[in-house]
Design a protein around this nucleic acid. Sequence first.
DNA 1: TTGAAAGCGGTACCAC
DNA 2: GTGGTACCGCTTTCAA
Lengths: 342, 342
Amino acid sequence: MAGLATIKDVAREVGVHPSTVSRALDPSQRDRLGEPIVARVLEAAERLGYRPDAAAASLRSGRSRLIGIIVPDIANPVFSPIISGLERTLSARGYALIVADQPPDRPEQPDILEMLVARRVDGLVLANVSLKDDAVERCLRWQVPVVLVNRAETAGRVPSVVSDDVAGMRLAVEHLVGLGHRAIVHVAGPQSLSTGSLRRRGFIEAMVAAGLSVVDDDIAEAAAFTREAGLPAARLLLAQRPDATAVVAANDLLALGVYEALREQGRRCPDDVSVIGHNDMPLVDMVSPALSTIRISHREMGERTGELLLDMIGGVCAATPQIVTQPLLIVRGSTAPPPQGS
Amino acid sequence: MAGLATIKDVAREVGVHPSTVSRALDPSQRDRLGEPIVARVLEAAERLGYRPDAAAASLRSGRSRLIGIIVPDIANPVFSPIISGLERTLSARGYALIVADQPPDRPEQPDILEMLVARRVDGLVLANVSLKDDAVERCLRWQVPVVLVNRAETAGRVPSVVSDDVAGMRLAVEHLVGLGHRAIVHVAGPQSLSTGSLRRRGFIEAMVAAGLSVVDDDIAEAAAFTREAGLPAARLLLAQRPDATAVVAANDLLALGVYEALREQGRRCPDDVSVIGHNDMPLVDMVSPALSTIRISHREMGERTGELLLDMIGGVCAATPQIVTQPLLIVRGSTAPPPQGS
DNA sequence: TTGAAAGCGGTACCAC
DNA sequence: GTGGTACCGCTTTCAA
């Protein structure tokens, strides 16, 4: 490296042994040394611009102070605040975050998971697990601390931080029922993901709890959590249930797909059909009509994930906690009472 | 570490010396060895699940295959696609990306830049430099390869990848002039950032080129590139120039702030006042009215940044190229001819 | 073609 | 309290 000062340079400068420098630099060992020597070491280190080599420390200590996260898409507004919150928590405690993305369509080119394990990350956050995914199993085998975020697995073998998807859907359905809706349908997300599957289940449970029945035609599954995938699913749904007065979408992008489908058919939202999303992404308050939705604090999920993971690494937490954050109903302009006479 | 196999384990398994294993695993050295021994090493490595320890390799070789990026906000829709494009390019070539954010208001708590240098990153991407920033100087002193992205510095001491901000503003102004506007004003971004400053200059140049003069009252500077900062700037501007028929905003969020200011005053867009943004963020096509804007491909900027940085690390590129990508005018519903009689 | 040995820059454990 | 030393896992140079 570019001639950066090493611990030996500092030791030579001060006239002490390298191990003494190492101790003087470590706050937890510092008090075992004499005051003046610590001061001189600190001064010399500062003056020489000394920076400990993380690779060397990692090699010897077995801890890299590196955490990895794998997401399906870094730029996705669901995942970027998770990354952001996680990074904030980690960097405050001296950990750095390696971000890798692994879109569902790019399977395991140069296996990202192995790459991170090879870098000896102290812990791993998986934001991309599908319900049947071997990533968790491999982490377990490698004994690397891992936390799932946003999406969980059914087995619950590892800790996770997720939003209460079932509760979120209950909020959505109860809101619509409260407005007088009875003919409520659901654009579901991919059932291979916990978010898609749990929100679908939450929808059904809430409908049943409200005394409304749900049949197959009341639900259409979108191939992905995107506007593009939402449009055909919404078209199908509106064709199957032309009498529907409200659509619950499994996320905001799907809800925007519903907007487009309604526009195609010349039906107005919320006058003819109410629409509610999920996530409260940035800018959905600016679309027309402003989208009613279920707010999830992804940034907070990222922060809690970081705390949990650091606890695990520190050996604080023995169990496998399943942290569930509570979502919030946000009422805007896309939900209203059903049209008269329906 | 969790008992992961080392090179010694593989050597013992095959019955050769560790250095032989090292050579067998290195494609560029492999051909100096006998065919059968290479095959046996590869097989044993596979079977034991051997993964080279990146820290050890880094320590010895002096190259960490780690790249750092510092952004002002990971979740910002301008920066997240840059990170995404960068990560894609890097991971394809065996590099991992450490992401750190350093918001302008959180100065240098535990100095992020030093932290990354201490981790011996092979290169650094700075997406957060302001026009007067010592980060570049420090990287130069430490001799760590660095590329600026999105925001550049005036001095041009290091390579950068930016959008042609001046050209972007020319596209915006020419579009409005072409529609018949003459009374055009500008909500500028922070002048401490190259994007804010260059877009302001581009606005003035384009206005002058169109034979229109610009005075102080025609421009209001927002304190940040946010909706919240856009609102008061827009209020001020509309008060100073009540006759304005078009507003050029320095980015999309500021444009949305203009929307709010217009709404407050009961003026309609685009009927009374046209508005154009900059960036073409996700979802601005869904706001009402759909926002006309200048599209920048941030993902592509991230990719080109990665290529450039890897070239520098490989010693391919001696000069300090300033890569400038060309923006694109996207016409939607927020721009229209000025009202009759104005 | 392969083996041996010397480190890279720290940390941890043992002496004194 | 401080110095000495071994060693983390790998790469690389030198010998054989």
